[in-house]
Design a binder for these strands. Structure first.
Length: 426
RNA sequence: GUGGCUGUAGCUCACCAGGUAGAGCACCGGAUUGUGACUCCGGAGGUAGCGGGUUCAAGACCCGUCAGCCACCCCA
């Protein structure tokens, strides 16, 4: 008998974890809709070409991390490594860019990397994308929105915003040349990865962690000096609006990000509580991507949140959510069970928000109450022999020290309405 | 993809100069007749990740493999 395990880098999210996930998802949904963002649902598989063109042929993601395979028609398909490409594809395909769009999506992404904490092969992202606004107020809204989510989740104190402007494509062509010119003179002092990147993707050398490389970069030309005046003004405006909102940030001139489609604003929310996988959220502006895919010229910006990392961060801060029912129903015997069945059915209809768990499988009162206690339910709803024959029910509080009370069937609805009102105000 | 650490009951771990495994928690049952939590008693649960080797004998040593973790790398 072979025993099966989830394949490497793919993890099960078990029932003791899903309440935390759901509360996070609900918070995100509420924050997003409060800013007028609408959900878009996208396929998990797209043509390989889509990702290669948008993310960049020489990026690590495309070169060695994609789950690509030929389908039965021998076309090359890829499990999405990120969400922006598919979102932009949908925008163009359905011609949604005729007006501005504020969109979000949530779902699994796939990257063939070596797993460690905060890094899986299948992981989940919340993506937020905005199309049609070229001015920095859009960037500000995205950042403000993300910070609102951190506050809502109670993780804002653990997160730091790093931000930079990487300019237009033209700016970067000029800067890239200057950087290559400078570093070529010191080629032998670069680490192996950086030497390789000198020919392929020189800007990525900027965020190398190698100390010698970093030292070398101290006297390298600065990207900020290659930005045109308009971009500089926009970046300054963006920062001043963040100041207005009281968003604290660190301008990190070495922040460049690993996907080719970004321009102008790039930013990351990072934490020191997750070890090496410190980026919880990252994004920026990508003004040319829509046109690249054949749409009309449409400015755009967005970000992605790593949901596993967010959960890890919440857990590191001892944020817990438990799902416990309101009522756990205990019945004395077959007759009491039959008596309770239609009554509970009516209750569920009358109180859709009430969580009612019925004890199944019989057993002694004692064992049923044990289960009731372990379930975490607030009350045990008791149908004993006496209650049934008198058309009554007993309510035993399980979480507070108070007396059990027995009331008439007809009074239960009133009681529960009062309980729910109290629970909501609490 | 590179380097390192780890892998024993559901969970956290222990034992042992190499001689066929234990604890705590969790789980199930019981402590007189319709009531949980605390306590007490009892029970179930492991071919020691998997495969091979050395040995009279291996969970303990060696090799391989798989998986997790840490760093690199990468990014969310």
């Amino acid at each position: 008998m072979t025993t099966y395990r989830a394949i490497r880098g793919m993890v099960d999210i078990l029932p003791d974890q899903t309440p935390l996930w759901q509360s996070m998802e609900t918070a995100a949904l509420e924050v997003l809709s409060s800013y007028g963002y609408a959900e878009i649902r996208l396929p998990i598989i797209e043509s390989t070409d889509l990702f290669a063109r948008s993310i960049g042929e020489v990026t690590d993601i495309v070169e060695k991390e994609m789950y690509s395979f030929p389908d039965r028609n021998d076309d090359s398909m890829t499990l999405r490594p990120e969400g922006t490409a598919g979102c932009v594809r949908a925008i163009v395909q359905h011609n949604l860019a005729v007006t501005t769009q504020r969109l979000w999506y949530m779902g699994p992404m796939f990257r063939y990397e070596r797993p460690q904490k905060g890094r899986q092969r299948q992981f989940h992202q919340l993506g937020v994308e905005a199309f049609g606004v070229a001015t920095p107020d859009q960037d500000v809204e995205l950042i403000a929105l993300s910070r609102q989510l951190w506050r809502r989740l109670g993780v804002d104190d653990a997160l730091q915003l790093e931000i930079n402007s990487i300019g237009s494509a033209a700016d970067r062509v000029r800067y890239r040349q200057a950087l290559v010119d400078y570093l070529s003179g010191h080629r032998d002092q670069l680490d192996a990865d950086s030497q390789r990147r000198l020919d392929t993707n020189p800007l990525r050398i900027l965020d190398s962690k190698n100390p010698e490389t970093q030292a070398l970069l101290e006297s390298a030309p600065a990207l900020s000096e290659y930005l045109d005046t308009e971009t500089q003004a926009e970046f300054a405006a963006l920062l001043s609006q963040l100041d207005l909102l009281g968003v604290t940030y660190v301008v990190n001139p070495r922040l460049v990000r690993g996907l080719d489609y970004y321009n102008k604003t790039v930013f990351e929310w990072t934490t020191d509580r997750l070890g090496a996988q410190s980026t919880v959220c990252g994004g920026g502006r990508y003004d040319t991507l829509v046109a690249t895919f054949g749409g009309k010229d449409t400015p755009a910006a967005g970000f992605a949140v790593g949901l596993e990392r967010l959960i890890l961060l919440m857990q590191s801060l001892d944020i817990t959510v438990t799902a416990a029912a309101d009522l756990y129903v205990v019945t004395a015997d077959e007759n009491a069970y039959r008596h309770s069945l239609p009554r509970l059915d009516a209750l569920r209809r009358q109180f859709p928000d009430l969580d009612i768990v019925q004890h199944l499988g019989g057993g002694s009162f004692k064992s049923q109450f044990k289960r009731a206690d372990k379930s975490g339910a607030a009350w045990a709803l008791v149908y004993g022999e006496a209650e049934v024959s008198a058309n009554q029910v007993s309510l035993k509080p399980l979480r507070v020290d108070a007396e059990q009370q027995t009331i008439a069937d007809g009074e239960l609805a009133t009681f529960l309405a009062g309980y729910l009102a109290e629970a909501h105000s609490a």
